[in-house]
Design a protein around this nucleic acid. Structure first.
Lengths: 147, 147
DNA sequence: CTCCTTATTGCAATATATTGCAATAAGGAG
DNA sequence: CTCCTTATTGCAATATATTGCAATAAGGAG
């Protein structure tokens, strides 16, 4: 893949190495349309390399995040989720209980975020905006447990 | 404490109970000026009740967050931190570089968040909304470093 | 290609956080 | 106050994420 070659060059220039595992994690992330958990990514990587290890997945994800290639979302109880950058750049809602994410498509919301950032002088990346909440399913569970 | 009594009433109305442990956790959080980790809060609670358990601290913190009394900040690799709400329940901008926070006062933004949540069926706690970005100072630093 | 340096991996140990479930206790009813 | 329902607790087990370190392999030098 040409994109891997370009990336490899960029990494080398900074003293990093493009390894088989990093390629596999990147490939796996391209397959997911929604932010994925480390476990999901591991599962996908295992299809190509059964020896893949969760430790390496976590380290690779943290590395790629620092390198600016992916974004990480954390919310409450849910596991962290990772998403490949460069897509639509839409903000998301994330359930702090089960980790389910939903894209926020409303232009009004995007404008409000941009405006809030501008007003306070902050440079905000819309794609990294994650609003924590409780998804419909988890709201029902909570109500049920209470009764 | 009168504030505990008021809170107790509010909880009862929703079918929850004001317990010794919840009181202790709330008291502990009032002592911290900066967001505290669960371990720090446990340590503080243990001063009053050596039998306190980290499980209960976590559950209480999550409960209080859902109740809107405290906010939880998940910051990348670091442990989550919890902070007592000033009562306003405003969303914040947070600098991903230096951690500086700024309150988002605009009603338009709050409405947009509420609307995005409602449209997707999510129950969103406005006080736990944190928008990551780069504060003005860090934007200047970044420009300087780049050259 | 072979040799060499050292970034990266994979395992095991550890840290951080949540869940299942029996025991406890909050608080309403009498 | 006593009785009763059930929310909450505390323990143990489990899930999620990171760290230490020896083994491996990326990739530059010859």
């Amino acid at each position: 893949m040409s994109c891997h070659k370009l990336l490899q060059t960029a990494m080398r220039e900074r003293g990093f190495r493009m390894t088989r595992q990093r390629r596999l994690v990147l490939d796996a992330m391209h397959k997911f349309r929604h932010p994925a958990t480390a476990a999901e990514i591991l599962h996908s990587v295992c299809a190509s390399d059964p020896r893949a290890d969760i430790t390496t997945v976590y380290r690779t994800l943290n590395f790629l995040e620092g390198f600016g290639l992916i974004s990480a979302y954390g919310a409450g109880n849910a596991s962290r989720r990772f998403e490949h950058n460069g897509g639509d750049g839409s903000p998301h809602l994330i359930c702090r209980q089960c980790g389910k994410t939903s894209e926020i498509a409303q232009t009004g919301f995007k404008n409000a975020v941009a405006n809030a950032g501008r007003t306070n002088g902050y440079d905000v990346q819309l794609s990294s905006v994650v609003i924590p909440g409780l998804c419909p399913a988890c709201q029902r569970k909570r109500t049920k447990n209470k009764s």
